[in-house]
Amino acid sequence: MNQLAKFFFKSAIKSSRQPFQLTQKSIRNFSSMEQLKKLRDETGSPIAQVKKALDEFGGDFEKAKQFLIEKGLASAQKKLDKETREGVIGLYVSQNRDLAVIGEVNCETDFVARSDLFLDFVHSTLKTIVDQKKNVKFNDEQKDQILQFLQNNTLNKEIIEGTKNENMDKVRQLVISKLQENINVRRVSTVEIQNGVIGSYTHNTLADNIGARACLVSLEGANSSDVSKQLADNIALQILGMKPDYITKENIPADVLQKEIDRIKAEFGDSLKGKPQAVVDRMIEGKLKKFYEDNVLYDQTLLTDQEKDAKTIGQLINEQCKQQNSQIKIKEYILWTCK
């Protein structure tokens, strides 16, 4: 290869490594750098489509924007049937701790599930439900009811410029258009309590109160002190970490308890023969203690307390009852993992 050929070859290689840069010189007709950037940010449309829209509408920003939004919504409609296997569980709790909501929102990829716009949509949707004091309980089989709810309610926050006073579903479709992935609100449920506090905990958080797993729990009868709130949050963490099947021993169905007793007797085998009934009962009760610790919330010690003499959830609740001079009990809890 002669020297001239080498020069042109190196120049071509160097040029190919340079990233594409949009310059004033490359913008023609009515499109300006500022308009292009702003319109791209507000609509999520590719830069080529943004420039074309501005040119077609003679530089009229609002007309170009409306055109791109409608085009984006049409594009979003085509994505609504795509499967959504990724997503998050989000929470929002009112300042007074008397109303909270938990929701699962899905998308197609983990990349989008971690994006700021997606997380903002999740947070804003849940916050709106609490701020407007909505009472909703939709499971993942109530798709039509969820869609109707989104269409009939306005999002409080303008997460995309120009969407003020738009319904939640319209905003969802605009988010789909910008992120180029289908997004579904899979399920959502509120927890409300008149006399008590709500505790919450989120695991593997991607943003405030948004993660892969989350739990809400309501403590009926608890006052609004910081101690009560911390106890409620600790119980939510406990439920998320241990996933107990029952709140108290009294909640265990008789047939389930009998099945466990029969299993214990079979495990002891012939060693129970000839022993007084009182001794047999103590042996069985000793084995049942482990069953209770694994399956009954009130019989579990806090995950955050590793001391040998750590108190159980039931003991902690009883202590708070004495301090308040009132009865406190767990009214309900919701534990969700992103499906």
Rank of each mutant, 00 (worst) to 15 (best):
Q66L: 13
Q66E: 14
F67C: 04
F67I: 03
F67L: 02
F67Q: 02
E70K: 15
K71Y: 05
G72P: 08
S75I: 14
S75R: 13
Q77M: 00
K78N: 14
L80W: 10
L80H: 12
D81I: 06
D81P: 06
K82V: 07
E86S: 02
E86P: 04
G87E: 03
V88T: 01
V88Q: 02
I89V: 01
G90A: 05
V93L: 10
V93A: 07
S94P: 08
S94Q: 06
S94T: 05
D98A: 02
D98T: 03
L99K: 07
L99G: 07
L99I: 07
A100I: 00
V101I: 15
V101N: 14
V101A: 15
G103M: 04
V105Q: 05
N106G: 01
C107I: 03
T109V: 14
D110K: 14
F111W: 09
V112Q: 09
V112M: 11
V112F: 08
V112W: 06
D116G: 07
L117S: 12
F118I: 03
L119Y: 11
L119V: 15
F121P: 07
T125G: 08
L126D: 00
I129C: 02
Q132K: 14
K133M: 15
K133D: 14
K133W: 15
K134Q: 07
N135T: 08
V136G: 05
V136I: 11
F138A: 05
N139K: 08
E141F: 13
E141M: 12
Q142N: 03
D144F: 10
Q145R: 09
Q145M: 11
I146K: 12
I146W: 12
L147S: 06
Q148R: 11
L150M: 13
L150F: 13
Q151A: 14
N153H: 13
T154D: 04
L155H: 04
L155P: 00
N156T: 08
K157R: 04
I159M: 07
I159R: 02
I160A: 01
I160W: 00
E161P: 01
E161R: 04
T163W: 05
K164G: 14
N165E: 11
N165R: 08
E166A: 15
N167I: 08
N167H: 09
M168S: 02
D169L: 01
K170L: 14
R172D: 09
R172N: 11
L174D: 09
I176V: 12
S177D: 03
S177T: 01
S177Y: 03
S177M: 02
K178T: 05
E181W: 02
E181K: 00
I183C: 00
N184I: 02
V185M: 08
R187P: 00
V188L: 09
S189M: 07
T190N: 06
I193M: 15
I193K: 11
G196H: 02
V197W: 10
V197A: 13
V197S: 12
I198Q: 03
